[in-house]
Design a binder for these strands. Structure first.
Lengths: 357, 357
DNA sequence: TCATCGGCTTGAGTCGATTCAAAAAGATCA
DNA sequence: TGATCTTTTTGAATCGACTCAAGCCGATGA
């Protein structure tokens, strides 16, 4: 380890360590001649400042942790990109961590980041009610919830998932579907629960205006005159789980089979779509599909996918913005909950103009 | 900032700071009674060890930097996941950084990571010949090249890109194509150059055995009896660039238009495929397509995409492995270059059995 | 009772950069 | 030339945890 330190630089430039530090941090207070000598020494020795020591002394870090549910999901990649771009403008580094929706991994990352004394943590929590998050904040590490609304104890940026679910539901009902499947992930994930709730509410409203319509919003596949709803909660929001949900649906007798599916994210939807193709069901004729997130691949799918769009990069940027605001004035800071509106991008996968059956 | 330190813990437990440190690092040498008292104090105060101070003192960090060309590309997400999983087993943290194929961003990240005195850096360099990488290693931060072969100055893990290009080229020629387009990214990216070179070599070999075949491997669209090759190098390996290449090709008169395209990665290929659909060209009938990386979305595309598959997670795991090996015994360590073999997954996008024309 | 020994605990010194009061050097003016 | 400012530079103290030589203590054996 041939790491040069500030002391060697000082020796070489024939000044004190204090002066080298000044050159590094407030060059304007050092005389030009000295400053040049120090710069020369830095260059000759290949000196790179030890940020660890600096951090220990000043107590303030220049890195932010971002913990997401799934790095392999392009949605989060875009959120991360948004966060990174704004952080960069503030000379701050974002370290991206993957909880893979596993509470134990999430906890480990939280602990590691706290040990590192990062400036703050942006997190899409596995479980938004996790008391550890509040404890973290209390111990001095600000936390911003991303894609998940907070309850006042911390800042958050989110997209209205209930509204998104509602939009998707209304769209499918409007297109004439009367038996609709919701494909979700673990209900403990708030996004899943909210999208499902919004979706259900759309169905309920439709049932109210439906003449003689009996609605079954809860799940289960009972008979009923109005809109029938089934909900399946898969163990993860992945392509593979979407595929297995699709296969399960395709195996149903065509009379019992829903005519449309709303998937809680695009990965599920893409897997679901693959299963349809594999089982010879036509999309949207036999099965309409709406996804969520509108990742770039949604438009490039076997059948271009309708999807609820969220402002992905803006989510990331706003989260960093809230964090920087909190760090800049911890006293004055009032926690804020920012909520964006999603919108639906209709593509071929749900765009059947005639009513099915 | 209510951060408790080891001193407060010591006071509360009525022991010295040295003892608290011992409890933290070698609990077995502390008597059970004292140990318990200290653990109690830690719990009561909510003490979390300051990794920054620890790192400064012991000089060794427990984090590794991973700089990739594009976090939004699922290929790199999978590499990162592989790295993360092995690092986790060694109680080490991976911080993921995105260079976005921009040398300036890459440089900034290298600098930040060196300042943080990370244990080492895994990087998919924008320019593998960058002398900064060797300098970094010389100054004490080990570097492992990922998805890019090194020349002996450092460790590397890669997949044989020339071979991958060759496999793709042979496949298309075998399927009867005689006018083939290569869609690449910046030639400065080694993966692009190698895939192109391998691809060209496949064509050249085919030309040699072709009766009377004049081959034009370099690019340009001159006439010739054998296999004709065109190469377009787009500014980035993205879906958008693939789309614009596709539109450009679709605009050609059908006589001049290639019948097949090999794209340097799947993002390009997916964009290219979208453009074909938009312009009403059938895949694979009017245009066969082969991509590279075999990301999960390739199989889910409008027309399932043939693609050259790489062992993505294994790349990441192996990179961490090499790094840990180097860090464990810096003296004994001999740099190694690990190379994996790619293979082709044939799907519908290139699977036309009759010869085109 | 005293010397010896092993098991625990102590606390000063250290890692590298920053800070700031104080000293030194330089500039200005009478 | 000396007094008075102003501009630069200095170096000791500091951040929090780790290390290790030295000390303490109780037990054991003579």
């Amino acid at each position: 380890m041939a790491t040069t330190n500030i002391k060697e630089v000082a020796q070489r430039a024939r000044v004190s360590v204090g002066t080298v530090s000044n050159v590094l941090n407030r060059p304007e207070i050092v005389s030009p001649a000295t400053r040049e000598r120090v710069f020369d020494a830095i260059r000759e020795l290949g000196f790179v400042r030890n940020e660890v020591a600096r951090h220990l002394r000043v107590g303030r870090s220049r890195t932010v942790g971002l913990i997401v549910l799934d790095v392999a999901n392009p949605f989060f990649a875009d959120v991360a990109q948004g966060a990174d771009s704004l952080a960069d403008e503030h000379d701050t580094m974002v370290v991206l961590c993957n909880s893979a929706a596993d509470p134990a991994r999430e906890l480990r990352h939280l602990y590691q980041l706290e040990q590192q004394r990062v400036m703050g943590i942006l997190i899409t929590p596995v479980d938004a009610g996790n008391p550890r998050l509040a404890e973290l904040a209390a111990r001095g590490t600000p936390v911003v919830l991303v894609d998940s609304a907070a309850t006042g104890l911390q800042c958050s940026v989110a997209v209205d998932d209930r509204l998104g679910g509602h939009i998707a539901g209304s769209h499918l009902i409007e297109r004439g579907h009367r038996k609709i499947l919701f494909v979700g992930g673990p209900q403990s994930i708030k996004q899943v629960a909210d999208r499902h709730a919004g979706f259900t509410s759309a169905v309920t409203e439709a049932g109210d205006t439906e003449p003689g319509g009996g609605v079954d919003p809860g799940g289960g596949m009972g008979p009923g005159g109005g809109v029938e709803l089934v909900a399946w909660f898969m163990p993860a929001l992945s392509v593979a789980n979407g595929r297995s949900a699709g296969e399960r649906v395709a195996a149903l007798p065509s009379g019992e089979r829903p005519t449309a599916a709303f998937c809680a994210n695009d990965l599920l939807a893409l897997g679901f779509l693959q299963a349809m193709a594999a089982r010879g069901l036509r999309v949207p004729d036999d099965m309409a599909i709406v996804g969520y997130d509108d990742i770039d691949f949604a438009a490039a799918a076997t059948v271009p996918l309708s999807s609820v769009r969220q402002p992905r990069e803006l989510l990331g940027r706003t989260a960093i913005d809230l964090l920087l605001e909190e760090v800049a004035e911890p006293e004055l800071h009032r926690h804020r909950q920012v909520i964006f509106q999603p919108d639906l991008v209709v593509r071929q996968s749900s765009d059947l103009h005639r009513s099915p059956h």
